[in-house]
């Protein structure tokens, strides 16, 4: 019976690894994987790509550790199940050298991950394209349960307070592609979080704070934008879109949006 249980635990690990192995081909991986094809499911921002690289690095380390520990676990269980009646139990209180090895090796690996990732975090929050260096394209204000977005007029810069010629949208964040841009993230009421899964970007919107978030988008299309921090009963329906377009299209869109917004229905009579 003991052998059965050794196999049982090893089988559970094999199934877990197998499930992860086939998951991407069944759409159970990063968003976009389901559509298939080469490059599906990759991040669409430069910081997102670095996050993915780090994810895969951790995944490899974790997978090796998981398979290794479960192989050993399976072995010791099998050995304990097949021990003969006359065989002596190993009477050991431990091994100093083993303890030293399995203290130093994991701490080396952990320190490596810790140091390796610092650069990505620094890039996201304050190095390279810090929010101050990236162009502020919009102010995104979350509220129960929608996103209100304010853009500066074409050719102007985003001011902390609303300006008469600002352009507004609801639940649609328009950004230009190909260069780093930033948004000022605010909330009007409770806490929310700005999350664009395909860009791997997430930031809480905290009452009383204005938090700059920078990102760049590589492919002009629409991305889904969701709320990731519990904000009340309608948390699940803060559905919005991030619409990335080329620089020219972005300018054209803003002109059109401004025209629509300031159109009061009055037409100049024909002269």
């Amino acid at each position: 019976m003991g052998r059965f249980w050794a196999v049982f635990f090893v089988a559970s690990a094999v199934i877990a690894v197998g499930l992860c192995w086939v998951a991407p081909s069944h759409g159970l991986w990063f968003p976009g994987t389901l559509k298939g094809g080469f490059g599906a499911g990759v991040a669409h921002s430069s910081i997102g790509k670095r996050i993915d690289d780090l994810f895969y690095l951790v995944l490899v380390i974790v997978a090796v550790t998981y398979i290794g520990t479960h192989a050993v676990l399976g072995y010791v269980l099998w050995r304990g199940a097949t021990i003969k009646a006359e065989e002596k139990v190993l009477f050991s209180h431990g091994s100093h050298s083993l303890e030293v090895i399995w203290t130093i090796v994991p701490s080396g690996i952990l320190l490596y991950i810790a140091l390796y990732q610092m650069d990505v975090w620094a890039a996201y929050r304050f190095k390279e394209f810090s929010p101050k260096k990236a162009e502020a394209v919009a102010e995104v204000t979350a509220r129960q349960f929608e996103w209100r977005i304010r853009y500066p007029a074409r050719g102007k810069t985003l001011m902390p307070t609303p300006q008469p010629d600002d352009v507004y949208t609801v639940n649609e964040l328009h950004v230009p592609t190909g260069r780093p841009v930033s948004i000022s993230l605010k909330t009007e009421d409770v806490q929310h979080a700005f999350f664009v899964p395909e860009l791997r970007i997430k930031q809480d919107a905290v009452p009383g704070l204005t938090i700059p978030v920078w990102f760049d988008v590589d492919e002009p299309r629409q991305y889904e934008m969701v709320c990731a921090e519990l904000c009340g009963w309608g948390h699940y329906k803060m559905k919005a879109r991030l619409i990335a377009v080329s620089d020219e299209d972005f300018g054209a869109w803003k002109d059109k949006a401004a025209l629509e917004q300031f159109d009061d229905g009055f037409k100049k009579p024909a002269e």
Partner: peptide, 18 residues
């Protein structure tokens, strides 16, 4: 082991609150 993913801050940006 799954904790290591979220200890890696940049990865946590993505998987936080998922």
């Amino acid at each position: 082991l799954s904790g290591i993913f979220m200890a890696a801050v940049p990865v946590d940006i993505y998987i936080h609150d998922t």
